[in-house]
Design a protein around this nucleic acid. Structure first.
Length: 499
RNA sequence: GACCCGUUAGCUCAGUCGGUAGAGCAACUCCCUUUUAAGGAGUGGGCCCUAGGUUCGAAUCCUAGACGGGUCACCA
């Protein structure tokens, strides 16, 4: 039974004792009080005053009881609200008759939410405190809080009971406040530039827009399988066909893959599409976005991330795909540009390979293995090979490469953008070779044929550039967190075991 | 999916060579009217993650499993 624990039983008893005294432990009539921060700011002048108090000013503060120190006929307590902690002082003679001994001392406990009414004064040790004339229960907590000094350390409990983590570990709340500010700044940035926020389907008939394994679900009325979206890309581009010239969507994607420090099965991305622009302008827009975020959030451009110092000064460095493999990865040009030599190199170095891999896939392995982790300061890698970029526009200068870039920071991919492929015949052929890759190399993450999308392109999509940014990873960077679970409120967990 | 580590009171953690369970905080009973992780005296609280095995005897050793954390693989 959920309430069988001895501590909970004791607290339920106290809750009932409150009822017996005619006090509802869960009243519904309490209105929000003054924030502790405002109380402390408004009354700080008392510290310089002779008598250290102002009995004429009455404040009503509400918060969760975090500490209580009973000293016979007087007590100190600290309550915490959304703005922080504040100290309260009670004593027997200044509260209603008998209330101190029978209610405050006996029935109020750490964890309860209480309302305190009184006037400000400064204690002997100089702490601004509320001298209480009245105290009421706002909400009784029947489960005890974790230990006051060490808080909640157990990672499992912190994720499963995030609300407890937030009550006890105040920096957790700060991280998620920061997350909210980041997302809201990004939204404002695009709105200010006349991008339209849209919502496209989360349940797709064909999983598309990325190479990933989808979650499958079933629609009873239609009698068909649906796939939770792995990316919104193909729907957003349909909107460009329809005549919207700048759109963005901030929302969840779902990928049925492993869970680790940088992967959660549901994660948030922003994708934005910008008609009559190219991937070059997209890189500039991305730099503007970072400038805007750092400015709005008052972050230092020399950002500390773990043991790295990352310099976000714009413009970011740009390196071509091939140069990255050769110069940053330290692979010879021969190996990096020749399929046979590349394949031999992979075999000789015990790296992953497949006999059917085209040069682009081999280069991707070389890039991931040798270059990616070295890209600490923000760097745009450009000109990706065509075979690993099935939705990107072919370069007019070199048919083997695409007008695509990825942004790497702290050795991790943060953004992926390109001039969009708008030639329906080319797109059809690219889907076909993806389907082929699925069959030949058993690449079960290769894309499906989406003929409805090809049909949309056949009506004509204006030249457009589009980009996706992983919001969770961006937030990890900006909040110096090293696991995605620390920036997702309720990260994916296995069901709790019976034992 | 592989390997390593962890799981003991509500929380944070000890637990030696295998000898039958401990501390601090929290709780309960007292004392205490300016405390700061308040202090003092006392009391209660355990499916040592689960199931097997070894042993006279297992929190401790072995096997399997559950959950969590980490590394790798996967996720271009």
């Amino acid at each position: 039974m959920i309430f069988k624990n001895q501590y909970i039983q004791e607290r339920i008893k106290k809750s009932n004792q409150l009822r017996e005294l005619g006090i509802n432990p869960y009243p519904n009539s309490i209105k929000k009080g003054t924030l502790s921060k405002d109380f402390l700011t408004e009354c700080s002048y008392l510290k310089d005053r002779e008598d250290k108090k102002d009995e004429k000013k009455i404040y009503r503060l509400i918060g969760r009881l975090k500490f209580i120190r009973i000293m016979g006929r007087a007590s100190f307590a600290k309550i915490e609200d959304s703005s922080g902690l504040v100290q309260l002082y009670f004593n027997r003679d200044d509260l209603p008759d008998g209330y101190y001994n029978s209610v405050v001392k006996k029935l109020f406990e750490v964890g309860d939410i209480i309302e305190a009414v009184g006037y400000p004064f400064v204690t002997g040790t100089g702490e601004l405190t509320l001298y209480c004339k009245e105290v009421n229960i706002v909400t009784k907590a029947i489960s005890p809080l974790p230990e006051k000094f060490h808080g909640l350390q157990d990672q499992e409990l912190r994720y499963r009971q995030r609300y407890l983590d937030m009550i006890v570990n105040s920096e957790v709340k700060d991280t998620f406040i920061m997350r909210s500010k980041i997302v809201s700044s990004i939204r404002r940035f695009f709105e200010d530039r006349e991008f339209l926020e849209v919502e496209t389907p989360m349940m797709h008939p064909i999983p598309g827009g990325a190479n990933a394994k989808p979650f499958t679900t079933y629609h009873n009325a239609l009698g068909v399988d649906r796939y939770l979206r792995i990316a919104p890309e193909l729907y957003l581009k349909r909107l460009i066909v329809g005549g919207m010239e700048a759109v963005f969507e901030i929302n969840r994607n779902f990928r049925n893959e492993g869970i680790d420090a940088t992967h959660n099965p549901e994660f948030t991305s922003i994708e934005f599409y910008w008609a009559y622009h190219t991937y070059i302008e997209l890189m500039e827009l991305t730099e503007e976005l970072f400038d805007y975020l750092f400015d709005n959030l008052n972050l230092d451009k020399k950002l500390i991330y773990g043991d790295m110092e990352i310099d976000f000064t714009t413009p970011f460095k740009r390196v071509s795909w091939i140069d990255a493999i050769i110069e940053i990865g330290g692979i010879s040009r021969d190996i990096a540009t020749d399929r046979e030599k590349g394949l031999t190199f992979l075999k000789e170095n015990n790296l992953k390979y497949d006999e059917n891999w085209t040069l682009g896939y081999i280069q991707a392995e070389l890039f991931d293995e040798f270059a990616e982790s070295k890209l600490i300061n923000p760097t745009f890698i450009t000109d990706y090979p065509i075979d690993i970029s099935p939705l990107a526009r072919r370069s007019d200068k070199n048919p083997d490469i695409t007008e695509r870039f990825e942004l790497f920071i702290a050795g991790k991919e943060i953004a992926n953008g390109f001039s969009e492929l708008n030639d329906p015949i080319d797109q059809y052929e690219r889907f076909k070779s993806q389907v082929n890759a699925k069959e030949v190399t058993g690449d079960d993450e290769a894309m499906h044929m989406d003929s409805d999308f090809v049909k949309a392109l056949s009506y004509g999509m204006t030249p457009t550039a589009g980009e996706g940014i992983g919001i969770d990873r961006l937030i990890m960077l900006l909040t110096n967190k090293h696991t995605i679970r620390d920036v997702i409120l309720f990260p994916a967990m296995r069901p709790e075991s019976e034992n």
